[in-house]
Amino acid sequence: MKKLNTLVLASTVALAGSAFTVSAAEQTGDIHANDYNWMQFNAMYSIGEKPENPASGDQHNYLEMEFGGRSGVVDLYGYVDVFNLANEDTNNGDKNPGSGSSKLFMKFAPRFSIDAITGKDLSLGPIQEVYFSTLFNWDGLNGEGVNSTFWGVGADVNVPWLGKTGMNLYGFYDMNAKEWNGYQFSANWFKPFYFFDNKSFLSFQGYVDYQFGADEDTTVFVPKTADGGNVFFGLYWHSDQYALGYGLKGFKDVYLLEDGAGALALESTGWSHYLSATYKF
């Protein structure tokens, strides 16, 4: 059972932040007693990712290095994506050569346990642990690239059937514009639900990122809305060393881009598909 628990923990692929830590309230004296870390490489293929140009669509491959863990008061999740490994120009999507976008994207989401920092058990009902939460998104471009930060509070919440689910409420700070602009609610989960005789298993995993309370802007090239986001539903098979999965992702005015508006008439609302093959370290 210990090996199985370690496997489930190391197979966490939450994408929006790590929710699968041992509560500081369960630790006895040594806040490093339950430290762990994990890393895996995911070969991914995306079909119809939003936003996309309706004239060309968007299909691309990418390699994702995904990592996470717990060390004392710090709970960490993150990944680095490298798009179109062969540099092929398959279409005019924004991840392809010549689009002017970055070949890289990075998400870095450290959370700091308030339970562990204060030495107090802040669990209450379904709330198991409370955090000061941060999130950073970068794409490597200066000026007009993605350079955003999120700051707020979070908790590990015991949700019926899903179990421990990470939830965070952030204020959004745009480092390019040097201004606060709205909020984001994020949640992620990892639920093993069927186990095979060889100890491999199927999991339902995914996340929600929803921005709201932002300033609308109809004067820019692509008009911005006050709210929008995305949700990911994944079905994955996991073994000790490998994983295979399919994900269905829904978008609604993602990145606050108004669907079909502006000179490019980008589609920022709709559904996309993701295929993945994983090797775990």
Rank of each mutant, 00 (worst) to 15 (best):
T278R: 07
A10D: 11
T21V: 09
G250L: 03
G250H: 12
E64L: 10
V231W: 05
V74G: 04
G17N: 02
P51E: 04
V208E: 00
H60S: 07
I117W: 08
L4T: 10
D94F: 12
F41V: 08
T149W: 15
Y255L: 14
F221I: 09
G250F: 06
G98N: 09
F193A: 04
K3L: 11
Y236K: 14
F108S: 02
W151H: 15
A24W: 05
T269M: 03
N53E: 05
V8F: 02
A263F: 08
T225H: 00
T21Y: 13
Y173E: 09
F150Y: 15
D35C: 02
G270F: 09
G234L: 07
P97V: 02
L248Q: 14
M1N: 13
M39F: 11
F172G: 00
A187R: 00
T28S: 15
L162A: 03
V159W: 03
F232R: 13
D139C: 02
L124E: 04
N34S: 15
A116D: 11
V8K: 02
T28A: 15
D58L: 09
G250Y: 13
A243S: 15
N91H: 08
K252A: 13
L169E: 04
R111E: 10
Q184L: 07
G245S: 08
N142I: 07
A261R: 01
G140P: 04
A226V: 07
S18W: 14
K107N: 13
P223R: 03
F132I: 10
N37H: 15
G78L: 05
S268K: 01
K199D: 13
E52P: 00
M1S: 11
D227E: 09
D253W: 08
T269V: 03
F204C: 01
N91F: 04
M106I: 07
F281L: 12
F67H: 14
W138G: 12
W237N: 08
A33I: 07
D240C: 06
A261Y: 07
H273N: 13
F136L: 13
A226Q: 05
Q40H: 12
L76V: 08
S11E: 02
G234Q: 06
D215I: 08
K107W: 07
D89S: 11
A19G: 15
G260T: 09
F232P: 00
F233D: 00
M106R: 13
G17Y: 00
P223E: 03
D197F: 11
D215A: 08
D240V: 13
D121M: 10
F221P: 01
N5R: 15
N168F: 08
N230V: 03
Y236I: 06
Y45Q: 07
A43R: 12
N61T: 09
P160M: 04
V22R: 15
Y246T: 06
F201T: 02
G140T: 04
L104M: 14
A25M: 07
W161E: 07
A243N: 06
A226T: 06
L256Q: 01
E88N: 12
P192F: 09
G69H: 11
I117N: 12
G154D: 02
T134H: 04
N96T: 11
F204Q: 00
G270T: 06
D217Y: 12
L256W: 05
N53G: 04
H60T: 03
